[in-house]
Design a protein around this nucleic acid. Structure first.
Lengths: 141, 141
DNA sequence: TTTTAATTAATAACGATTATGAATTAGGAG
DNA sequence: CTCCTAATTCATAATCGTTATTAATTAAAA
């Protein structure tokens, strides 16, 4: 996963401005191993920047995606989540609330990577997902 | 993939009515190896039932999902697609238009199935997806 | 044939995300 | 350091896929 310094360099290189808002958003995405929604990022950045707009969060997320630094995990009906780890790995996801956690299996990741390289094209992303109601959601029903 | 007869039996068993609208929707889902959107289904069923409502399409899709007969493939910003093949297989998807095609690799499917059975829980679904702009969308940019 | 709960269909409502546009600001030029 | 300008931010409106609501209709059991 990238460091903030690397991200700043990358933004400068591609001619994008490095704003405090962008840094705050990146800090959340790249410092924690979570998969936050836009709104979760918004709430956390708001603590530092009380006037930040949700709009800015989405614009920054879209920029980071265009640069290939993060991946969007979209689901039906519920908010997308954003993952700063773009290398292949398995997610275990609750289809009701979207709670997403990594499932580490180095062997399988390696196998999948090999499979990807054998394709006759270069994919721009991939998803390996297993669905399972989380404890909270399976209690509610 | 299930036949219409099997679906009818299943609906009766679970106490659901077998309506001409539901049959028409199932016919589209289970007779072709496509992954249509709700609107695509709506347009096709409308030819037979000009007064059908998009609402009915969604209600039927949700029923079929609850029965575990189809899987929803949801994406950010674009319409979900519905797949009547619920056994594990790889999709190649255009992230722009959502065009989805199957990628058959029996060996990998077997490997994944084995992996699933080794988990200490029974998943309610899974997705194996590779993203790649389709010819149309990569031309537009 | 009658009855009744399930289903349909039309429309309103919802919610996540994008679009718009005026005000602000990062960062280069002088 | 100051000025300039295009990029960015922020507030709000708009969009669009999907769900909720409800009156009218219908499948299917009695």
């Amino acid at each position: 996963m990238l460091t903030l310094k690397q991200i700043i360099t990358m933004l400068h290189q591609k001619g994008h401005k490095v704003t405090p808002q962008r840094l705050a958003i990146c800090e959340i995405l790249f410092s924690y191993k979570s998969h936050p929604t836009a709104d979760e990022i918004y709430k956390r950045v708001s603590q530092k920047f009380p006037t930040i707009s949700l709009s800015t969060i989405y614009q920054t997320l879209n920029l980071l995606m265009k640069l290939g630094l993060i991946q969007e995990l979209g689901f039906p009906n519920i908010s997308s989540r954003y993952d700063a780890n773009t290398s292949p790995h398995i997610h275990i996801i609750c289809p009701k609330c979207g709670n997403t956690q990594d499932y580490e299996d180095k062997k399988f990741e390696e196998l999948w990577s090999k499979f990807i390289t054998k394709l006759n094209f270069k994919p721009i992303g991939q998803r390996l997902e297993i669905y399972k109601y989380c404890d909270k959601c399976s209690k509610i029903g």
